[in-house]
Design a protein around this nucleic acid. Sequence first.
DNA 1: GCATGATCATGC
DNA 2: GCATGATCATGC
Length: 465
Amino acid sequence: MIKKDQVLDKGKMKWATSQEILEHGNKLLNKTLRTQKGIKTIPEDLLLQIVGVKQRGSIGTMLEEYYYDIQPGNEAVPDFKEAGVELKSTPVKKLQSGIFSAKERLVLGVINYLNEANVTFEESSFYIKNKSIMLLSYLHEKDKVVGDLKFKISKLLVYENFSEEDKKIIRSDWEKINKKIRDGKAHELSEGDTLYLAACTKSATSKNRRPQNNGPDAKPRAYSYKPGYMTYLTRQFLGTVDDKTESVTRGDNVKDFEKYIVNKFSPYIGMSTKKLLEKFKVDTVAKSKYAILANRILGVNKQKIEEFEKANIKMKTIQLKHTGMPKEAMSFPSIKFNKFIEEDWDDEENVLRGQLEQKFFFVIFRCNKDCEAGDSKFLEKVMFWNMPATDIDGGVKNQWDKMQNAVRLSNVDKFPKSSDGKIVHIRPHGRNSEDVDILPNGESTTKRCFWINQNYLKEVVKENK
DNA sequence: GCATGATCATGC
DNA sequence: GCATGATCATGC
């Protein structure tokens, strides 16, 4: 009892209000942890740590222990207990074009599946811990030491001050996550389930599992704001805009974002591509012409759709033969062998899993019977989709394991083939056969990537007609 | 007609 | 010049 009071008094003395916390944070703007002194002096060896994966969290720890001098303990309450404020630090990066984006998602606390099954939104650990965040973002620069990183953002991120549209989406995201937890389906959670707030994997080792009610133990996951949403916030705070991005809702009062998007296409379902390309004045021979057409149908004239970027939704066009079989498998970026062999399946950094856990938006065109003879294609349908977690952790993981073993052995003959029938396979993916990457044994081979099998895509596209 | 290898086109 | 999304080409 006495101990508890002492801790509270200490906190109260220093950081009773969010305003004090913010003002102390503001001192770091355009400064570094070396040039701006905090409450306690940071030991030199900590400042000299090189920025890298191993030191993740060290900046956060330095801000807590030295810059603010707080000792957050309890996971379920905010770091500044009195003020009810959570402290977060996160990297931003500068793109070639000069604009900033978030380097990664913002992790908002591991989900306790047992507790969260019984709470409302306002009672959830997400809300209680993160309704008010002291956000300190620093510019990520490779090979710099931690003490030399420059802070660019110092803001109070107050949930209730988010726009009504964003709050509606985040609350509905939370409801979707919560429903799976209540239904004993925590093991089926996926990033792609939701738009801005996501349940991201969070595990030190691949064997780590957490219990849930009414279901098998599930991977540890944390609430998080998606990278796209963090990029959106970053640009708002820094006052920079991406002039290639355009809003699709334009302030419309949208009840259900996915339905809203799908409905925009409904007047054009069944129309021939020829007619559509004329109607929307898409006059190009580029391979991306159907993607451009999809944007135009949505009323977007620029390259990117703001809400899709915010939600990390990947738009893909699919061409079907008249039989319903996709004309092509679906490719992903090529594999970097040297990084790939170091990955662990459940790593937050796992590239393939990250790509497949995204939410996809498919714009599907289909050939008439005489398609090969002419251009008699039509818009068949559009759909949002994300790969079921059971497929990702099942067939995909099998192929990924197989591929990792093969690359580690530098054995090209053992790369998984599409005839194995396990959702994904490996194929070349470079500019040409001269475009190579280096295997562990030093030999070169054409760049490869994972492809989603045509047969699997066929079933996906057939579903929920 | 499919499986696999190879390459094109664009934008950054 | 390269990454990426998309598509072509060939042999079985």
